[in-house]
Design a protein around this nucleic acid. Structure first.
Lengths: 156, 156
DNA sequence: TTTGAAAAGTTGCGCCC
DNA sequence: GGGCGCAACTTTTCAAA
């Protein structure tokens, strides 16, 4: 199970999930520690799996993928083999950035990023070609109000 | 407008959005360049806004927020003032990690991360308290199949 | 055991070609 | 685009608490 984390660890996680570029010396100063103990805490947070990786975030508009579409899928197939095949092929599509198996009346929910409606239609056709889906419905996002990789730290 | 990017820039973006920790020397080797021109390209990709930031990604399970809920909201209020007030308060909730204004029959879509159903209910109550919403419906994710911060680079 | 200072080793950055 | 050197940073060691 998830080990006990104190207030300083939580501060370190908050800083690093906002900006992984802050130098160790500044990180240490911000949590009122000197370099060594601060470095060891960060090291431990990585070893224990709280920090999984450090990545560069890119600008969707600059990469020409400013349009996000949510795709709700219902299927009639529910075997394990079908699911594994379906998940693998859909997860391999680079435009699919999120992919969930859902409860309730829709079976799967995807978030897809594309440049425009025409490009979305090509992804859509790929989806219906890959697997026999009983129903698929697309909702377009008009405006991105918030999208963060920063998780809430209040529950740990 | 988005400037012209060549194959090497695309490779650099692909590597860095997967792992921002690769040292410059290795990065240069992977794209068959020496350190200096490689460093200049990365610098330029940052200046021009392709790379927006570098962050640490944390493990949702370790942070006790393994449950993700999609919240579909319909409202009867559509004035600019109401929207600004509503967006600001909802975006300020740390459990809300994504927040879109949608086309079609639902007005807003949120992705919320919480430890369990009880915690979700507290977020739900906060949402309905903040703003008069004509309809709100919650769908729980049973399984996360894919969730990546890596955007497709084929359209740039 | 945990801490901080300071040494040792990497890496990033800028000048030059 | 590449070579080299200085500066900055990370990581280890070590003595003290």
């Amino acid at each position: 199970m998830s080990r006990k984390i104190d207030a300083i660890d939580r501060q370190l996680l908050a800083i690093l999930q906002d900006n992984a570029e802050v130098p160790l010396a500044e990180l240490a100063a911000r949590v009122h520690l000197s370099a060594t103990p601060c470095w060891r805490r960060v090291q431990r947070l990585e070893e224990e799996g709280f920090i999984t990786r450090r990545v560069a975030l890119l600008d969707p508009a600059m990469l020409n993928v400013a349009v996000t579409v949510f795709v709700s899928i219902k299927t009639s197939r529910h075997s394990q083999g079908w699911f594994e095949q379906f998940s693998a092929t859909v997860a391999a599509i680079p435009e699919v950035v999120e992919f969930y198996r859902m409860s309730g009346d829709i079976d799967y929910l995807l978030r897809v990023v594309v440049p425009d409606i025409a490009a979305y239609d090509r992804v859509y056709k790929k989806l219906i070609a890959e697997a026999d889906l009983s129903d698929i419905s697309s909702s377009f996002a008009m405006e991105l109000i918030k999208c963060t990789t920063a998780l809430p730290l209040d529950y740990v």
